[in-house]
Design a protein around this nucleic acid. Sequence first.
DNA 1: ACTTTGACTATAA
DNA 2: GTTATAGCCAAAG
Length: 118
Amino acid sequence: MKSKKHTKNPDSFFEQVYSVARLIPKGRVTSYGAIARYLGTTGSSRMVGWAMNGAHSQKPRVPAQRVVNRNGLLTGKHHFGTPNLMQQLLENEGVRIENDVVVEFKKLFWDPSQELML
DNA sequence: ACTTTGACTATAA
DNA sequence: GTTATAGCCAAAG
């Protein structure tokens, strides 16, 4: 048997980020830091966003639009097909966006460490 | 193996 | 309130 894998290990940081991102309920949003913290790597908040770079290639589409920075700002909107796509998707789910910022972000915030701590 | 990057966050001014 | 700088970690070049 081959011990080596030709593909990335499912335990990779990226894969973990994708898994958590898919758990984000519709109409809710979270921050990169929250996901990173849930994975145990609080300081790797930047990697979370970077992982999203490959999210588009993932089989189950990763709702990257539900992931924003801690200010509720749609920082990754520029990485979508169109600059407004991210906002459109969020608004389509019931999340109101104003000035590229999630309205009542604090209320819609979904922290995996809190919601999945059961 | 080393350097650079990057969709962040926290603190300081 | 904003703007600037530093710290952080993991992956890609």
